[in-house]
């Protein structure tokens, strides 16, 4: 009787290593998402500044991040920067930096959009009761803006989680790399190994991203007034 292909997942430490690889990806994503959430809000507020220079500077940053592919940024930071600056950046740190920069830019744009879509009357009302500009932002604009951008922000978070798979190309041993290693070893005795391994990875990503999506839905209905 031929061995079931799925047994490749249960051989030795395979499953454990896959999950361990996933935790590397998750860690990079988590660090970047946390950083981007905070800095993205600040960037979004900056992008609505009345000083043109500030706005244009932020815009330049956003466009640079968007035009150049994430993979190229990873290569730039990991390979080129170390050559120019003469110090070594670990692959994981380079990943953290690049994904944080990317997430901040995207989040900033989302926040900017949510702020500028707020009716002007809300700001006027806030001023009329004697609040300073800072207080109007803190109590009136930002709370409402955050509620509005939850769906897009969660979408950004799941995109970031998925895109972390790129870091395998600068040598980070994350889940895809582990998967490849397992397949290479098992392919001779288990021809369907790649199906099961990638299937498992697909499933792992799903059980990470789906709860995030559900959480977003829960937030949306909670704030639906």
């Amino acid at each position: 009787m031929q061995e079931w292909g799925i047994s490749v997942l249960f051989e030795g430490q395979n499953l454990f290593r896959l999950v361990e690889g996933l935790s590397v990806s998750i860690r990079i994503a988590a660090v970047s998402i946390a950083f981007s959430a905070v800095c993205g809000i600040l960037l979004g507020i900056l992008m609505t500044s009345r000083y043109r220079l500030v706005r244009y500077g932020c815009r330049l940053y956003l466009e640079a991040i968007r035009i150049i592919p994430t993979l190229v940024w990873l290569f730039l930071f990991y390979f080129s920067l170390t050559k120019i600056m003469h110090f070594h950046l670990s692959a994981e740190l380079a990943s953290d930096i690049v994904f944080s920069l990317w997430g901040t830019a995207e989040m900033g744009d989302l926040v900017r959009g949510a702020i500028t879509s707020m009716p002007k009357h809300q700001t006027d009302s806030g001023f009329a009761i004697g609040l300073t500009k800072l207080q109007v932002y803190r109590y009136i604009i930002i709370p409402q803006a955050l509620r509005r951008l939850i769906p897009s922000a969660i979408n950004l978070a799941t995109r970031m989680i998925k895109t972390t798979s790129l870091v395998v190309l600068i040598g980070v041993v994350e889940v895809l790399k582990v998967g490849q290693q397992i397949i290479e070893v098992s392919i001779l005795k288990n021809p369907t190994a790649s199906f099961w391994v990638y299937g498992c990875i697909f499933f792992l990503y799903f059980i990470i991203c789906y709860p995030v999506s559900l959480f977003s839905k829960k937030l949306e209905t909670k704030w639906q007034q």
């Binding site: 009716p119 009357h121 809300q122 006027d124 009302s125 806030g126 009329a128 109590y139 009136i140 709370p143 409402q144 509620r147 704030w223 007034q225």
Partner: peptide, 10 residues
């Protein structure tokens, strides 16, 4: 007081 009352919805 404005025409659009503008209470804070949240």
């Amino acid at each position: 007081v404005f025409q659009s009352y503008d209470l804070f919805p949240h």
